[in-house]
């Protein structure tokens, strides 16, 4: 395990694009953690200064001020917290729901596994954001509901992936051998199948983070995210629209932030795929 992590770190450091991805993600995490320290106007998350509205970027306000006169830079930093919270929780829930279902459906070959796959197919039959819109709209705008809507729409991705990988892992000689030796199903699934498919899950999860952040931002943009005065990035861009093109900075900062964060996860996901894909992997046996 420690060996694997060392191997991963070494490989990631060698892959320039993946390293950029790691850097971007680490920046996001650090910004989210230290937002209160880094922010120049931490109070502006809830406080307004109407006389100072729509000021351009300056030494006082790095990224300018918004329609309420709040400091966009400070709000952006706090927005990172919302983004991380939404993406992390929604993806964790999706993985926690999706992976076991996929494992079970992949391991057993009976009507239950067929039914489970049909259900996930139906969820996949609607574009994710549209399903999320329907659910978020029903539940009302709030962070919790965005997370709920995203989890409810994203889990089938992991089910599909784990199902397919489990089915192929079951054909591997060593898995067949352990079944033949009488290992219990749970033992086979957890000790033999899961470690074998974990790299696919890691790659999918990393790239899934990027997609989830984009969808969450779109929900915020459509007014289905956390309600004002939340500094959520998507909502900030939506607010900025009526002040364009004059207050260009209003939309610029959150848009670039979303772009960089999603880019970070995509680059890391690509890098991990290259490293973990057994076809491109050189040494390192299981």
């Amino acid at each position: 395990m420690i060996e694997t992590i060392k191997f991963l770190i070494k490989k990631l450091a060698q892959d320039r694009t993946a390293a950029i991805g790691v850097f971007l993600i680490l920046s996001l995490i650090l910004v989210a953690i230290f937002a209160p320290i880094l922010a120049t106007h931490p109070a502006d998350i809830t406080e307004f200064h109407p006389p100072e509205r729509l000021l351009g970027p300056s030494a006082e306000h790095y990224f300018g001020t918004d329609r309420m006169g709040s400091d966009i830079y400070s709000r952006l930093l706090y927005g990172a917290r919302i983004t991380i919270a939404i993406a992390l929780i929604a993806i964790s829930v999706s993985v926690i729901i999706g992976v076991p279902i996929g494992l079970l459906a992949g391991y057993y070959r009976n009507w239950v596994s067929d039914a489970l796959m049909r259900v996930s197919d139906i969820f996949l039959a609607v574009p994710q954001i549209i399903l999320a819109i329907a659910i978020a709209q029903t539940l009302g705008p709030s962070i919790q509901n965005v997370i709920l809507a995203l989890s409810a729409t994203y889990w089938p991705f992991w089910t599909r992936l784990v199902y397919a990988e489990t089915r192929s892992a079951l054909n591997e000689p060593y898995v067949e051998a352990s079944i033949a030796l009488g290992a219990s199903p749970s033992r086979v699934m957890i000790l033999h199948v899961l470690p074998n498919i974990s790299s696919s899950i890691i790659v999918r999860t990393t790239i899934g983070m990027g997609g989830t952040i984009l969808t969450a931002a779109a929900l915020g943009f459509l007014g289905l995210g956390p309600p004002p005065p939340s500094p959520e990035w998507g909502r900030t861009i939506a607010e900025s629209r009526e002040f364009l093109p004059e207050a260009w900075w209003y939309a610029a900062a959150p848009g670039i932030a979303i772009f960089l964060v999603v880019m970070g996860f995509n680059l890391l996901g690509d890098g991990l795929r290259d490293i973990l894909d057994p076809r491109t992997r050189r040494s390192k046996g299981g």
Binding site: F221, G234, P245, A251, G255
Partner: peptide, 23 residues
């Protein structure tokens, strides 16, 4: 490609408007 998959489409739309339509 990487940018295309990382950019929020509503933001890109606004950028296009800002640049090609307004500017």
């Amino acid at each position: 490609t990487v940018s295309g998959l990382a950019i929020a489409s509503f933001w890109l739309a606004i950028l296009f408007q800002l640049f090609f339509a307004m500017e």
